[in-house]
Nucleic acid binder design. Sequence first.
DNA 1: AACTAAAACTAACAAGTGTTAGTTTAATAT
DNA 2: ATATTAAACTAACACTTGTTAGTTTTAGTT
Lengths: 189, 189
Amino acid sequence: MKYETRKDEIIQTSAVLFQKKGYSAVTMRDIAKAMGIKAASLYNHIKSKQEILSEIIISLAEQFTEQMKIIKNSDDNSIDKLKQIVALHVNTTSNNQFGMASLNNDWMHLEAELEYYLKLRKNYENDFRGVIEEGIQGSELINGNPEVMLFSLLSTLRSLYIWLPKKEDLDIEKFTTELSLVLINGINK
Amino acid sequence: MKYETRKDEIIQTSAVLFQKKGYSAVTMRDIAKAMGIKAASLYNHIKSKQEILSEIIISLAEQFTEQMKIIKNSDDNSIDKLKQIVALHVNTTSNNQFGMASLNNDWMHLEAELEYYLKLRKNYENDFRGVIEEGIQGSELINGNPEVMLFSLLSTLRSLYIWLPKKEDLDIEKFTTELSLVLINGINK
DNA sequence: AACTAAAACTAACAAGTGTTAGTTTAATAT
DNA sequence: ATATTAAACTAACACTTGTTAGTTTTAGTT
């Protein structure tokens, strides 16, 4: 079975539409049409459009924050931690390519859960920054500006959802290795 | 004078709003309110909401495509060309921080000009890819996957609009240098 | 066959959408 | 002063929005 419940089907169908046009431009009638039913019928399964967005974004944000904490608290060296962070993003994006678009572009349309989302994101970024600073202090990383490094890594990892779907026949593990190499060692010979 | 014309003021005001909530979530009444007038009055200066979006996006896309062509056709080496591309993004973003959000997130809401925009973007990306491939062939860059390199660089450069505004007191030139270093040489010691 | 519950339906709502028509105001040139 | 014009206004339009109420259909159980 592709979907666990009808509610799950609504959420996943919505994620596909949200990715193409964004939350605000997708109507309940669009979502219903994509499922072959009428808009009013959606409300037998969900309580609002907002709930759909919230379910898509919060579950992903929690996954990232949780996994990041585990990586941060492991006793691997900093370079290995960074590689694990890259793998976390590649794997999560590859399993949830549509939801990642909402996570990146539609979080500002959260209402009740906006604050909670922002807290999760801040935790995630702080942990990421911690890994980088640790790497600089331990002389594993160059003595550069940690903010610039964080920005550069995070930007690339957050954009994976745009890029991964274009490469259907992709060896995920090989790609993770290639990307880690480029991000950590650069492209200069 | 901050604005050249009233139309220009509408476009810049809209860009600020589009950046916060996206094109679809911003209404003509929102734009009018931000300018202290009524929605209908906007139509003395512009012909549609769509025209506003188009003016924001197309002018930026043309700037990038033009400048990229100049960089590509220069006879600098590949590393220098990459540094110039980084500078192009940093400078353009720093001069047009709000418009860059629409360029990145709202291009799919273009109607008449969507095709033209896609053509410009394709040209830009092809030229960028060309610079990278040239660098690999000339042994200036590692012999890695050029698609992965392009993706990584482009993702970071395209995200500058999120990050630059957070660092108000930023030395643009110094930042350009730091970013080039991280992108080209990596973060590994 | 009768009952139940899930999930679809039709119809409608109140509010909000981009946009137009026609009018008034404000500023400038004759 | 008068005429002109740019740019604001009010009022309204046709349509779309998320959502609710009430009803019918579908499918499984007794």
